[in-house]
């Protein structure tokens, strides 16, 4: 499966083009401007086995985070999502929410299997995964992650 098809299936449309934006180290797509002049778009980042998608609205004064979605890359399926109302965009806040969402996924899976794990270790591991995704070049991470799918 080509990169475009994988990305197209993740973002819900095969036609929308994603463009890498170096300034924010993310792939941006699905952009449109409302009649009120506000711009809405998605920012996508790859991490180990997952894709994180942010729904962002850029108003005249503030940028708002309207939603967060995390997809399993191997299943190309939405695993968890949150939506927000009037949440002013902050990178630290985005990272904190992603961390909570992944901890929830981990916790539910552990409960279902009846296993226990060190919560502090999990916290550190997830934190590292998120920091890597935001800090390291997303073009390289995307190539690595998509390569895993076809191996």
């Amino acid at each position: 499966m080509s990169k475009e098809l994988i990305l197209g299936s993740l973002i819900g449309t095969g036609n929308s083009k994603l463009t890498y934006a170096e300034k924010v180290n993310a792939f941006l797509g699905n952009s449109y401007t409302s009649t009120a002049g506000n711009q809405y778009f998605n920012a996508m980042r790859f991490a180990d086995g997952i894709v994180i998608k942010e729904d962002i609205g850029q108003g005249y004064k503030y940028a708002f985070l309207n939603g967060l979605r995390i997809y399993s890359l191997i299943d190309k399926t939405l695993i968890i999502e949150e939506t927000f109302h009037c949440q002013i965009y902050s990178l630290d806040w985005v990272k904190a929410r992603i961390k909570e969402m992944l901890k929830k996924v981990l916790s539910e899976a552990a409960s279902a299997r009846g296993i226990t794990y060190d919560l502090a270790d999990a916290d550190r591991l997830i934190q590292r995964l998120i920091e890597d995704a935001f800090r390291n070049d997303q073009r390289i991470i995307m190539d690595q992650q998509l390569k895993r799918l076809v191996e």
Binding site: T77, A109, A110, Y117
Partner: peptide, 16 residues
């Protein structure tokens, strides 16, 4: 979604 969550969780568990 549950299956996909399990795959993601398994990736994380593997690192533990």
């Amino acid at each position: 979604q549950k299956e996909a969550r399990n795959h993601v969780a398994q990736d994380l568990f593997n690192q533990f």
